[in-house]
Nucleic acid binder design. Structure first.
Lengths: 323, 323
DNA sequence: CTGAAAGCGCTAACAG
DNA sequence: CTGTTAGCGCTTTCAG
C-alpha cells in the first residue's frame, strides 16, 4: 500500500503539499495540484484512516446505537438506519454499529475515539442513557423525544401534530365519532413517548373540532380484528378509524371490508406499507428514512459545533399531498 | 483523556510494560501487573483505537455489507446482523456498516484500512462482487452460496438439505401429493440461489420417497390466498403444503382454516415467526441469528489465518426437535 | 522480567 | 504558493 510519502515523491513535492491537496486547507497552484492528483491515481493511493485519525483527532465515523433485534418495528428501524447511513455517506462519513443491548457500548466507542458522535435510536420517555450522554466527550443526537429533551439534541417526527392532523381530516370528512387504534400494549408499556404524543394531539384536536374520540391499543397481526369487533360492538356509532399500527392495518382493513356499515380508515404509517392496503383512504406518512437522515445531519452539525441543543420535529403530512 | 504514558508514569513503569500488560504478549510479574491495572482504573484509561491501529496495522473492526433497504426479508436481515454483531462483540470486535447499494464501499473501507475483514450479505448466485473480493487485501466471508463458492469463504443455511428434510417429513406423515410454496417471483428473479437449492432438495427427496410434488412461487401478503385457491383447484389431491415464505404464511394458513379438506402445513421460516401461526404443524427453523454469528466466526478465523476457503452449511432442523 | 526508542502514516503549525 | 518538522498514542523490536 502506497503512503503519502510515495505520492509526494512521485509528484516531486513535499508530504505536506499532498496533504493540503487532499484537505483543500490551503491554496495550491493548479499545476502542482494536477501532478499530485495524477500521482495519487497512478499509485492507487488511499489515505490510511487510522493515521489520519491519530493526527487529526477525528475519525469520520458516526456511532449508531440501534435496537437490532426482532420486534414490531424492524421495518421502521431499517429505514431510519438506511436514511442515516445514506446521509452520512454523502458527507463522507461511515457508521459504526452499536446495539441498544450493549449499554456501555456507546461510552466505550467514544472513549476509544472510534467515533466523532453518536446517533441514538429507540429512545424512551425517561431514558437512563440521557444522563450518560451528556457526560460524553463527543456530541450525540437522539431520534425520539425523551424527558429533558431541551438539554440534548433530539430529532423526531411530530406525533402530536400528526394526531391533530388526523382529527382535523376526519372532521372535514364529516365524521362525528371516531377511534384511534394505536400501538400494541407492550410498545405502549415501553413508553417510547410517541404514542402518548399522538394520543394527546388526537384528543386535543378532536375536542376542538367537536369529534367524539375513543382510544384503543391494538395488537399486531390477526389479534387486531378482535379489537375492531369489540369496538364496533361497544360504540356502533363509530364511522372512522385512525390506525397507528402498520402490523395490524391489513387485518383491520380486511375485517372492515366485509362490514355492513362503511367505515373510513386513515393511517399513520410508512407510506409504502399502508398505501397498498385496500380500504385505507388516507395515510399520514411516517418518514422513517428522512428521520434517519435528519438525525445524521443534526449529528454532523453538532460535530462541527453548529448545532444548538433542543428538539427538531418533522412536520406530518398526508402521503401524496404537498407538504 | 489519559494516554499510555500517563498510566506508565502513575504506575512507575515504562510505556512498553503498560502495553504488554494490555496485550499479554509477554510475562509480567504479578506485582507490576497489579500496579499497572490499578493505574489504568484510577485514570479511567482507555487505549485509543486509532493509535493502536496505526501501530499494529489492524483495527478491531469488521465491515458488514448488508442490504439495508425496505424488502421482504428485513426481519431475516436484522437477525443476521444481530447475530454477527453479538458474535463480533464477544471477540472484542466492532462492526462498520456498509450497504449493498454502495458497491465501492467495501473496497474503500478495505483500502483505507478501516476494517480487518468484511462479511457480505445478500449474495446472488452469480455475484459481480465475487471477483472484487478476491482482489481485496483483507479476508471476506459471504453469507450465501454463489457460483465459485469454493474460491471464497462462504457460510449459509443448507437449503437443499432443508428441502429434503421437508419432503421426508411429509412422506412420513403419509402424504402422497404435496406442494412447495416458495418465495415471491421478484425474489426468485434475483437468483439468490437459495430457492433453487431448496427446490432441488425437495424435488429430489420427493422422487426418492415416492411423493408427487408441485412447485409454486407465491407473493407475500394477501395475494398468497389466490395461489392457494388456484393450487387446490388444479391439484385437488394435494394434502400438504411446504411453505417457504414467512410473509405469505399467515394468509395461507388463514385461507386453509376454513377449508373443507384438512391440509397439513409445514414451513421453512425463522421459528418465532412461524410457530405462532395457527394451523402450521411443523417448522424447519431458519436460524438467521446463528447464521450471522457463524459468518462472523468464520471471518474472525479467516483474519487469524485459520480458515480454509470453501463453504460451510448449517444443517436444518425442525424447531423444537433436537438437532 | 523490564526499559528505551524507533517507527506506523498523517496533520498542522512554523518557516520561508 | 511550498517545504520542514514536531508530534498524535500506540506496538514492537532491540537491549539489558
Amino acid at each position: 500500500m502506497p503512503t503519502i510519502a510515495d505520492v509526494a515523491q512521485a509528484a516531486g513535492v513535499s508530504i505536506s503539499t499532498v496533504s493540503y491537496v487532499m484537505s483543500g486547507k490551503r491554496t495550491i497552484s493548479q499545476e502542482t495540484r494536477d501532478r499530485v492528483e495524477q500521482a495519487m491515481v497512478d499509485l492507487a493511493y488511499s489515505p490510511q484512516a487510522s493515521a489520519r485519525s491519530l493526527a487529526s483527532r477525528s475519525t469520520s465515523v458516526l456511532g449508531l446505537q440501534a435496537p437490532i433485534r426482532a420486534g414490531v418495528d424492524v421495518h421502521v428501524v431499517m429505514q431510519i438506519v438506511a436514511g442515516a447511513l445514506k446521509e452520512a455517506r454523502v458527507h463522507h462519513h461511515d457508521i459504526l454499529l452499536l446495539t441498544s443491548d450493549d449499554a456501555a457500548g456507546v461510552e466505550r466507542a467514544a472513549r476509544a475515539g472510534m467515533v466523532d458522535g453518536v446517533l441514538i435510536l429507540d429512545v424512551e420517555t425517561s431514558d437512563p442513557r440521557v444522563g450518560t450522554l451528556a457526560e460524553l466527550s463527543i456530541p450525540s443526537v437522539l431520534i425520539g423525544l425523551p424527558e429533558g429533551a431541551d438539554q440534548l439534541v433530539c430529532v423526531d417526527f411530530d406525533f402530536e401534530a400528526a394526531g391533530r392532523l388526523a382529527a382535523q381530516r376526519l372532521a372535514e370528512r364529516g365524521h362525528t365519532t371516531v377511534a384511534l387504534l394505536g400501538a400494541p400494549p407492550q410498545v405502549q408499556a415501553r413508553h417510547t413517548s410517541y404514542s402518548d404524543r399522538l394520543t394527546r394531539g388526537f384528543r386535543a384536536a378532536s375536542a376542538e373540532v367537536g369529534l367524539t374520540a375513543t382510544i384503543h391499543s391494538c395488537p399486531a397481526g390477526p389479534g387486531a380484528t378482535e379489537v375492531v369487533d369489540a369496538l364496533l360492538t361497544d360504540s356502533p356509532e363509530t364511522t372512522a378509524l385512525f390506525v397507528h399500527n402498520e402490523a395490524a392495518l391489513p387485518f383491520i382493513a380486511a375485517r372492515l371490508m366485509g362490514s355492513a356499515s362503511p367505515i373510513e380508515i386513515i393511517a399513520l404509517s410508512p407510506a409504502e406499507l399502508a398505501l397498498p392496503v385496500p380500504g385505507v383512504s388516507d395515510v399520514i406518512d411516517l418518514p422513517a428514512e428522512e428521520l434517519g437522515a435528519a438525525g445524521a445531519r443534526a449529528l454532523l452539525a453538532a460535530i462541527r459545533g453548529e448545532r444548538q441543543l433542543g428538539a427538531e420535529l418533522l412536520a406530518p403530512r398526508f402521503a401524496g399531498e404537498a407538504g
